[in-house]
Design a protein around this nucleic acid. Structure first.
Lengths: 226, 226
DNA sequence: TTCCATGTTAACATTAAGTTTACACAAAGT
DNA sequence: ACTTTGTGTAAACTTAATGTTAACATGGAA
């Protein structure tokens, strides 16, 4: 194996379900957290930043759909996987959920086996998102907490977009980021900006950093390298 | 725009389903191929290497489950997404399918909307670059994530088409790729380019790589070998 | 409000990538 | 040996992507 255990948050108002599903997921090696309503789910989500959130649609205080909506509006949960548990097998709500950013559906009454299988299937193909940590590459340090870039001892402050751009590229040095990837990561999935916007920001960043550390891969995207 | 359209192969013995679902997926911007039984599905899968395969469980000649099993045993289809269409809502076969490597289930009778939503949801969270595999052949490494070719420790960057060409050939060392195959894989099925285009790119690649690893098979095509 | 920093767009310049052309060559068939 | 067919090569050419600049838009702070 590798890496740390995946964190899963289950939110459902029926204690039985929390217990049974929780038990089985833990047996599979996941780190399980539970919440008994929508508000608690949101709080715990913020605290533990789970890799997967399983939401009952029908919950007190906030429904699963509402919770999903709120989470998806925050960058932190942009890439978190969400599975809905629902008794409603009607098409409309399924579509609504999926288009809102849910990743899968499991209909109640739940079969633990099916759920576990789906969870496993889901994680089988994900590679975990890196946490917002300080990045150090050679002479360059990028500190997302202080919002600072340090080059050869000299500190400089970048504009928000500029910073997010460098941070993204530098988060995986050498890896090429497609223009779409950059767009969706830095600008968001629904925002529509012109073609040259990325270029201009790339240019600004290159200018400010002084060092030539961003390479263009024509027809593909950009990458950061030492 | 960006990258090529995702390729989807649908296999079902009911022509109606092929037509309706196919039509709708094409409308969503996917490149759709169809097959009417298991054997045809396997053949087409090999030819077009789809990004997603939608398999009816109940099909003549070979069932969807069998097709899935065969595909999954081949490295080429290790990471291809597979969705089952099934009338059987019984748990057992769902679990069997998921554990065999299917990525999702849609129960018949199919709702086109639900299927489309699921397909979109599936592609939405894939990071195309991370599913691409690094190729290592002897002294040569081809890294589609970093978009780099490394020969005996020396890194070099190729142009997009050049890279795609090497990557294709190197993905199956020794295997001969027909000129048609190369065209459809690297240039796409609808693009029309002259006869000498491939040659010229082959030449550029040979030049840049320095090493002589691409063999001409006259009257047939090209192959990559150590 | 006014100012300033940031973000976005548009227009144009520049460069790289891709394609075609034209011809030279080499192998296979006659 | 000669012709045919398919491939190699270089250079001219076309297309597409990115770089660059400047102007405009926006939103928050003074």
């Amino acid at each position: 194996m590798e890496g740390k255990a995946k964190k899963i948050l289950i939110a459902d108002d029926e204690p039985d379900i929390l217990e049974i599903v929780g038990y089985n997921l833990e047996k599979e090696g996941y780190e399980v957290h539970t919440a008994k309503d929508g508000i608690e789910a949101l709080e715990k989500a913020k605290n533990i930043t789970p890799d997967l959130i399983i939401l009952d649609i029908m919950m007190p205080r906030k429904t699963g759909v509402e919770v999903c909506e709120i989470l998806r509006s925050q960058p932190l949960f942009q890439d978190t996987f969400i599975i809905f548990l629902t008794a409603m097998s009607d098409e409309a709500s399924q579509i609504k959920g999926l288009e809102m950013g849910a990743d899968d559906y499991v209909n109640k009454p739940i079969s633990t086996k099916v759920l576990i299988s789906r969870v496993n299937a889901l994680f089988r193909r994900i590679n975990p998102k890196d946490t917002d940590k300080l990045i150090r590459i050679g002479e360059i340090t990028i500190d997302p907490v202080k919002f600072l870039v340090n080059i050869k001892g000299e500190e400089m402050i970048l504009a928000k977009k500029e910073f997010e751009l460098v941070y993204l590229l530098a988060s995986r040095p050498g890896r090429v980021f497609l223009r779409n990837e950059i767009l969706s990561q830095v600008w968001g999935n629904d925002v529509i900006v012109g073609d040259r916007t990325i270029d201009v920001h790339i240019r600004k960043v290159r200018q400010k950093l002084g060092v030539d550390c961003i390479t263009t891969v024509k027809g593909v995207g950009y990458k950061f390298d030492a």
